[in-house]
């Protein structure tokens, strides 16, 4: 699994961190998404899919 985030689209809702905090964080100064792990392991796959699904700005893309 490969994860791609779009910082321009991100609205800092924090949903991705809620869903998968080992993979996503938020930038200190404005809360914009920080990708901690662009190739998360299989055991995190469900959480990462949830993160992409609950992102209100559609800023997370998953390439399987």
């Amino acid at each position: 699994m490969k994860v791609v985030v779009d910082e321009e689209k991100c609205v800092a809702a924090g949903q991705c961190v809620n869903a998968a905090m080992d993979v996503f964080d938020q930038r200190e100064e404005d809360g914009i998404v920080v990708l901690l792990d662009e190739n998360p392991s299989d055991d995190l796959a469900d959480d990462v899919r949830t993160a992409a699904a609950v992102c209100p700005a559609l800023a997370i893309r998953i390439e399987e």
């Binding site: 404005d30 809360g31 914009i32």
Partner: peptide
């Protein structure tokens, strides 16, 4: 983005 900083997860 001027308002998001204090409310991050």
């Amino acid at each position: 983005r001027m308002m998001t900083r204090p409310f991050t997860r």
